[in-house]
Design a protein around this nucleic acid. Structure first.
Lengths: 216, 216
DNA sequence: GCCGTTTTGTAACTTTTTTCACAAAAAAAA
DNA sequence: TTTTTTTTGTGAAAAAAGTTACAAAACGGC
């Protein structure tokens, strides 16, 4: 009954599925369809919806339009969300230009770097000195930050962000960040995610070999 | 007692923490230290270790060297893991050059694209036509794939990968991929992760406002 | 060598998350 | 209109994940 990280991730998935269904001309949708698209049980879908008071019609399912609008509202899409990125290396630069965010109403306003060779003024998104980050966040009232600096610099960058008014952070540095409760942190560790794939792939290989040897 | 996704993610974190501790000159480590570094309970650490038969010494903790070696073995670091990337747009290009993978013994061998303007032969990593992907995977015996193509192309790319011998995939396309059980899929949805941050940030703001209005 | 202290390993418990199952509602069919 | 069918919404049950708590072991000081 509580709203947790995974629950919100599921809402994002339902939303994505709905956008696709809408583009295909669907007008209504059943919990079953969304469950399938999100890879969960249909009761899970209905339960998630009930948490947020999203209701459908018995036998009629949910109206795609309405549901999409509600999900967008819940996920904060009723206004453009602005964010900044610290660290414009490989990952940071990619995110700075990534059109997936813009499509979903998230606008990356600027990037900040320590390496001057990466500075550049651009029409939409500038890359500025990391020293200017605090001031930028404060004067533009930015609340969301993305950390894509090396692990040894991440905690310090976080502190600048939080002190300047950032309330939520998506962190790509492979280290645990500590923050006051006033700042939400969500970490994505790309290496760990790939190690995860590698682990389960090898396990599967092993099981397969085991099965084969059993068959002999 | 079961090995699940989160458990392996934790192992990666313990491993990262151990590397840092080793560089700081630590010779032994306690479950407490690792728990702290990974943001979990110390019993969780010991339980995770017990699943894999990793033992320490009562009162003596764990030897950093040994533990690191064991974790590396479990996570498949006893040999270089090779991977290919489909889609060399923003995210794909960043991952192609990301040094975090190489540092952890994961070698991205090639990228594959549909857009010829992105083709290029490079000393280490070439970007080739997507049409060549199947052949490349097969002739090099690659088992791990990274999908960074747009959502509408992802399922098709997955099928080429699986048919060519890929056994595990890290997927960045914001769509649910369906595969035979012979291929492990782990999806990272960057927009959903950021939406997650935004959601909880707004909730926190709301609670804060609520608290303030209570104080008035 | 003995004693107090610290830390592991794990069994039992608690909490969280997911699934099952079904009454109630509503559409469609008869 | 009545019956049948389908699908929601939600308690209750099950499964999974995480925490507590403590006996057993091992280190260091005396």
């Amino acid at each position: 009954m509580t709203v947790n990280r995974r629950c919100i991730i599921r809402l994002s998935r339902y939303k994505n599925a709905l956008v696709r269904l809408k583009n295909l001309g669907f007008v209504k949708v059943f919990s079953d369809n969304l469950a399938d698209a999100a890879g969960v049980n249909s009761a899970q879908v209905r339960k998630d919806f009930s948490i947020f008071g999203l209701t459908g019609n018995k036998r009629g399912g949910y109206r795609v339009d309405e549901l999409l609008e509600e999900l967008n509202r819940i996920l904060g899409k009723d206004r453009v969300q602005e964010a900044v990125i610290a660290g414009v290396g490989n990952i940071g630069a990619a995110l700075l230009q990534y059109n997936g965010f813009e499509k979903e109403g998230i606008k990356i306003r600027a990037g900040f770097e320590i390496d001057p060779s990466k500075f550049r003024e651009r029409p939409g998104v500038s890359v500025l000195s990391l020293e200017k980050m605090g001031g930028y966040i404060r004067s533009n009232g930015i609340e969301i930050g993305i950390i894509a600096v090396p692990d040894f610099a991440a905690q310090q960058v976080l502190e600048i962000m939080v002190n300047s008014g950032i309330r939520g952070v998506l962190n790509f540095a492979p280290i645990r960040l500590r923050s006051s409760s006033s700042c939400i942190i969500n970490s994505v560790n790309l290496v760990a995610e790939l190690e995860n794939v590698i682990y389960f792939t090898r396990i599967a290989d092993k099981n397969f070999e085991d099965n084969e040897s059993q068959n002999t």
